[in-house]
């Protein structure tokens, strides 16, 4: 699935999908659940929590 298709299905821009993939944006719960729903996978299979580095 292309980033553009996923973006359209979730209702965000392609740049937001790129940012999520590159770990540069943590989506809202709503968007995160929509992404999991598009892939038909459980939420925890798509996302996992990593504590961000404190600079």
């Amino acid at each position: 699935m292309s980033q553009q298709t996923l973006a359209e299905k979730v209702g965000v821009t392609r740049q937001t999908i790129i940012a999520i993939e590159k770990d540069r944006y943590s989506p809202s719960l709503e968007v995160a659940f929509k992404i999991a729903d598009v892939f038909g996978s459980p939420f925890e299979e798509i996302f996992n929590y990593q504590e961000s580095e404190v600079i």
Binding site: G11, V12, T13, R14, Q15, T16, A19, Y25, P27, S28, V31
Partner: peptide, 9 residues
């Protein structure tokens, strides 16, 4: 072509 705005914006 795409000019939409989302939660990140």
């Amino acid at each position: 072509t795409s000019q939409s705005e989302d939660e990140r914006d």
